[in-house]
Amino acid sequence: MKNHYFAPFFLLFAMLLNTSQLLALDVKLTPTRDYVEVIHQGKLIKVQRIQDQDHTLTGGYAKTSRKCPPFCIQPMQVAPGIQVVGQVEIFDFMEKELLDGDGLLIDSRTPAWWKRGTIPGSVNIPFVVFTLDPNDPQLIEAMKLLGVKRRGDVGGISRAIEEIGFLDGDRKNDDWDFTQAKKLILWCNGMWCGQSPRAIRGLLKLGYPADRLFYYRGGMQAWQSLGLTVVLPDEE
């Protein structure tokens, strides 16, 4: 009789257990994270890994060799003071800085690459933009997106005060005001790609603070090799 009472509860418990096991992913991002959600072109995109454990990489990123130069292996240190990040740091970034607009994930590749697939949450600012003249509207627009303001004529006295370290002088130069500069993670095709290193060097040359710049060296190559979600951007 007692068994009769317990049987339905046991069955229910077994069913619940089974459902939760079905919902949990076998291939997680990290031991505690199944996926991260990120806003891409106004839509929520779930970033997760391919669940088929027999899947092997196909497409352009399965290729091992390209002519060098120009497709040469990049060093870890692309410029002094620039930190290198990996995928887990990108997941954290997606859930923190990116979510609240304090940071940007920048696909530094030319539009031809971007439209063939990008990391969700990224914006496309090709590296060439950061080599333009400070008066170029395209550069001014891009810098605005990064939280950097173009400065008008700054008085000699104000500049002199800034240069000795007052009025946030360490975050300003003759052309730009970096006091609200966002934290940026720049990436391109991976270890063999020179586009994001060029973008980083371009930004540094413009005066962008090195402590706000991060280099995702693994880029699309590493992202793909882990079977992580990629988005095909809408035509803008």
Binding site: I50, T229, V230, L232
Partner: peptide
């Protein structure tokens, strides 16, 4: 091109 298994349209 990216691996079609990873690609999603925005």
């Amino acid at each position: 091109s990216v691996d079609s298994e990873t690609a999603r349209s925005a």
